[in-house]
């Protein structure tokens, strides 16, 4: 196993191509759930969780059902990629929600509303699609999924920390609330642009 390659993928997904700040995926929860640190952490954990299982199962579905080189019937079904990924992710998240509600009520409490909210989040679909576009293996897809989730959580938690402090700051009336949050998001994206000069591997 090529650990160096996996490290490159992980750093790439967390910092260099951060899902929120560089690819601009999953902006809705980024603005919507970043009002308080505790809910941001809850949301982040749920996203890491869902992205990991979404990477795993979408990779399996793509390779064994859609890709003409490897699937069972040898025909090109790659045009079904988006619809089958959404189907798989939504179904799986619903299933996982039921399982943890039964087996781990405390985890269910912690993830709360965020699990169903992110079933069809574009960042989750994005990580599944990117895995295929980059021709990742199963292990690489998993690492990319986890790392993308961590990157999302990082951006969300940083934003929540800033917004909690912004509540106490003297912000002009017209900019209070979401407008100043968007400005902050822009500034953070510019800051993360610095990581694009990072050369790994």
């Amino acid at each position: 196993m090529d650990w160096g390659n996996l490290f490159v993928i992980a750093v790439g997904a967390i910092l260099i191509n951060n899902f929120v700040l560089m690819r601009f995926l999953g902006i809705c929860p980024y603005i919507g759930v970043s009002k308080s640190l505790s809910s941001a952490i809850g949301m982040g954990m749920a996203v890491i969780f869902v992205m990991t299982i979404a990477s795993l199962f979408s990779w399996i579905v793509y390779v064994y059902l859609l890709d003409p080189a490897t699937n069972f019937w040898g025909v090109d079904l790659t045009f079904l990629r988006t619809i089958s990924f959404i189907l798989v992710i939504a179904g799986l998240v619903q299933f996982v929600e039921m399982v943890i509600q039964k087996l781990a009520p405390s985890l269910y409490q912690a993830l709360g509303i965020y699990l169903p909210l992110i079933t069809t989040n574009c960042a989750v679909l994005g990580v599944a699609v990117l895995n295929i576009d980059e021709n990742y293996s199963l292990v690489e897809s998993l690492v990319n999924g986890i790392a993308a989730g961590i990157g999302f959580t990082l951006a969300l938690v940083l934003m929540a920390g800033i917004r909690e402090r912004l509540d106490l700051a003297d912000v002009p009336k017209a900019l209070q609330g979401v407008p100043i949050a968007f400005i902050m998001a822009g500034l953070m994206a510019i800051a993360f642009l610095g990581f694009s000069g990072l050369s790994v591997g």
Binding site: V61, L65, L66, N71, W73, V75, D76, L77, L80, I83, S84, L87, V88, G91, L92, Q94, F95, M98
Partner: peptide
């Protein structure tokens, strides 16, 4: 490819729906 598409998505849907 049409048969494959129907079988794949239909099968997936049935599997997930039944599973849920």
């Amino acid at each position: 490819s049409l048969i494959g598409a129907i079988a794949s998505i239909g099968g997936l849907g049935l599997l997930l729906g039944g599973g849920l």
